Simulated assay, not measured.
Amino acid sequence: MARTQVTVAQMAARMTSPKASHWAKKQENGSYLAIWLLLRLYRFGGKYVILIVLAPVLGYFFLKDRSARTASMQFLQQVHSYKGTQSPFAQRPGYWRSYQHFWQFAMAALAKIDGWLGRIPVGSVSYEGSVSFDNIIQTGKGALIIGSHLGNQEVCRALVRSKYTVRINVLAHTQHTAAFNRILKESNSDVDLNLIEVTELTPTVSVMLSECIERGELVVIVGDRISAQAPERAVWADFLGKPAPFAIGPWVLGSVLQCPVYLMFCMRQKNGYKLIFTHFAEQLQLPRKERQQALQSTIQQYAQQLEQVACRYPLQWFNFYDFWHLPTPSQQKAQSTEGNAR
């Protein structure tokens, strides 16, 4: 299918939306006690007990969270429209597909617990892509791995940690999922090991990560969400036939670290997981004079690969917000004030 040409006019028209909100300001659904109870039921009651309990609970949040429901349907319908006759859906996705989307998100949360409890058999994991994780380790070099909120990055980290001794430093913004992450840590204290909470890539953070790379360690960051502090600092790339904003931070970091860059996806399948590792660049180059053009080209390549996997596993897309718009300046200011007040 031919890709659409993204023009400056299109980008400007889609730059902000009065309905869009920042992903980092979205509040966590459910209290610590409620999430703790559900996960306890799952851990000790088993799969079938949690399925019975989870269905009505999830139905409640599906009805309550209109913005997430709208974003879910927007994404699924965009996939269907973009893929045309090759759509993964037999018909235009509606409320039932959206509910299934919510369900997959809940299953991914439970899978994170399974991952850190060692319940995912190594034999249920298959591999795909231009390079394997073994290949990455065998080079002996430090590397930057760029993930996303497509699939289950946490399961991948748990699986890798159970098999390899290499240190993996994960850059994360977890303030909006504090209750769940607290419970995840209670299941295994290694959950937040080498987890670096960041809201902005400062020179200090870059120096620290450069030292990690020099020691042959891995650095993991997601590339599919705009900056928590400066969402307007984004590059627009074609994604599923529409311009979408992507953060520049991961790619600038890649050029600073001067190391190999890989893409990573961990996708759930019927009988296990598929780990997809792709060699993206031996070293990212962002020449000063052509910096914007280089960023545009690099991010478009990432968006294209993200798109390919998203179309194969649309129900494992866990960005439940308006992905194609930036929040308006007034919303950003209001959300920032709200965040500071908490």
Results as ranks from 00 to 15, higher is better:
residue 183 I to A: 06
residue 146 I to F: 02
residue 118 G to P: 07
residue 203 P to A: 00
residue 164 Y to S: 08
residue 126 S to Y: 09
residue 208 M to Q: 14
residue 165 T to Q: 12
residue 85 T to A: 13
residue 159 L to Y: 07
residue 99 Y to P: 02
residue 141 K to V: 03
residue 125 V to T: 08
residue 137 I to L: 11
residue 176 H to L: 07
residue 109 A to S: 15
residue 119 R to L: 15
residue 124 S to R: 05
residue 136 I to H: 01
residue 167 R to H: 08
residue 177 T to S: 15
residue 111 A to S: 15
residue 176 H to Q: 12
residue 190 D to A: 13
residue 140 G to M: 00
residue 172 A to Y: 13
residue 95 Y to H: 14
residue 144 L to V: 08
residue 174 T to D: 09
residue 186 E to V: 05
residue 141 K to W: 05
residue 160 V to Y: 07
residue 211 E to Y: 06
residue 131 V to R: 13
residue 144 L to I: 06
residue 123 G to I: 02
residue 137 I to M: 05
residue 123 G to C: 04
residue 157 R to M: 04
residue 155 V to I: 10
residue 205 V to I: 15
residue 131 V to D: 14
residue 197 E to A: 11
residue 80 H to A: 09
residue 182 R to H: 12
residue 207 V to E: 05
residue 170 V to C: 08
residue 92 R to Q: 07
residue 170 V to I: 10
residue 198 V to D: 03
residue 190 D to T: 13
residue 154 E to M: 06
residue 109 A to N: 15
residue 88 P to W: 01
residue 108 A to N: 15
residue 97 R to S: 13
residue 143 A to M: 00
residue 171 L to D: 05
residue 117 L to Q: 15
residue 138 Q to F: 01
residue 100 Q to I: 03
residue 132 S to L: 09
residue 133 F to P: 10
residue 84 G to P: 07
residue 82 Y to A: 13
residue 170 V to F: 09
residue 207 V to H: 11
residue 96 W to P: 02
residue 155 V to W: 01
residue 154 E to S: 11
residue 190 D to R: 14
residue 94 G to S: 10
